[in-house]
Amino acid sequence: MNGTGLWAPLEIRPGDVGAGSGAGGLAAYLDSVDLEALLVREKALVFRGFQVPQDGLDAVLERLLPHRIAYVHGNSPRTKVGSNLYTSTEYPAAYTISMHNELSYAHAWPARLVFYCAVAPASRGATPLVDGRLWLESLDDEVREAFAGGVCYTQNLHGGSGLGKSWQDTFETRDRDEVDAFLAGTGARWSWGPEDGLRVSQVRPSTARHPVTGDEVWFNQCDQWHPAALGDETAKALAQIMPVDELPQSVTFADGSPIPDAYVLQVRDRGLEHARDVDWHEGDVLLVDNMLVAHGRRPFTGPRRILVSMSD
């Protein structure tokens, strides 16, 4: 918490905790604290001023993420750059990425995320964070009640040529049997279509409760899957000329009824309104509890390069 009583991520600097700089200094500090308790209490931790070099990042990740996992079934454009280490997103720099919890639309999601600043942007480019409980409480009663039954996400994944991501990139495999085996354990409905395309639908809750704190948090990505909330003009145009259920991704209420535009716009805007920005300096590391805190991205200029890794 900050002095005004509003939530903010905790910043930890070497001088504040008597630690050395670099990957070794941060690793030694992490070995000396109860990281699990600290993260649950603070929800997000910014390790600022340690100036961790990228070639020392693995030593830090070993401590922050007990079991790094792959970004399987992810819908964001990313490039894998190491052992379950990815670019944070490749969405165009001019656009805001609204608040979301990673893989909240999936049957399983990472418990923790680590963001690492390899190259700081020339300007702007913060990673905004929002307290999921505050986000839920900020919504009008009408909106919260409408979402009580959950939502249904639909993906249309092409087989190598088309709009959006391919199923090969999404599931990190070219073996259809592997995809079938993965989806069989998720509760999703799926079918293979013409030209090696794949359609996946899954009903998920709109909120979740944290297993340790018991906090109920807003935990879905309705605004990012709904045409009304898309910030990309090209995506908006596609939504106007294509049936909604043929878009690369779309969302409805769990019973299949449409979600009003005003509802998803409120969700998007309230999340961004209550967010706290984490500005980046090269070598910074950010650890977040992926249920308690949602994240996004501000527009930026320059060659911003933020890497992300995840743990269950």
Rank of each mutant, 00 (worst) to 15 (best):
M1S: 15
N2K: 14
G3T: 14
L6H: 14
P9I: 00
I12Q: 11
I12V: 15
R13W: 02
P14I: 00
V17R: 13
G18R: 12
S21P: 07
A28D: 11
L30T: 06
A37D: 06
L38M: 14
R41L: 04
K43P: 00
F47P: 01
R48A: 08
Q51C: 13
Q51I: 02
Q51M: 07
V52H: 01
G56F: 06
G56D: 03
L61M: 10
R63Y: 10
L64K: 04
P66R: 14
H67F: 13
R68C: 07
I69Y: 02
G74A: 06
S76C: 10
K80Q: 15
G82F: 08
S83L: 13
N84S: 10
T89C: 09
E90S: 08
E90H: 10
A94M: 12
S98G: 14
H100A: 07
E102W: 06
L103R: 04
W109S: 15
L113W: 02
F115K: 06
A118D: 15
P121S: 08
T127D: 04
T127M: 05
P128S: 11
D131Y: 07
G132P: 03
L139P: 08
L139V: 07
V143M: 03
R144I: 00
A148F: 00
G150M: 01
G150N: 05
V151D: 00
C152F: 00
C152Q: 05
C152Y: 00
Y153C: 03
T154C: 01
Q155C: 12
L157P: 02
G159K: 11
G160S: 12
G160I: 07
Q168V: 12
T170W: 00
F171L: 09
R174H: 10
D180T: 12
F182D: 02
A184N: 13
G185R: 13
G187I: 01
W192Y: 14
P194M: 12
G197A: 15
V200L: 05
Q202H: 11
Q202K: 02
S206D: 01
E216V: 11
V217G: 08
W218E: 01
W225M: 15
P227N: 13
A229M: 03
G231S: 11
T234Q: 12
A239R: 10
M242S: 10
P243E: 12
V244P: 03
D245T: 09
D245F: 03
S250F: 07
V251P: 03
A254I: 01
D255I: 07
D255P: 05
S257W: 01
L265C: 06
L265M: 14
D269S: 14
D269T: 11
H274M: 09
A275M: 05
H281S: 15
V285T: 06
L287V: 11
A294G: 15
A294S: 15
A294T: 02
F300V: 06
T301E: 15
G302I: 07
R304Y: 05
S309P: 05
S309Q: 04
S309C: 07
S309V: 03
M310F: 12
M310W: 02
D312C: 13
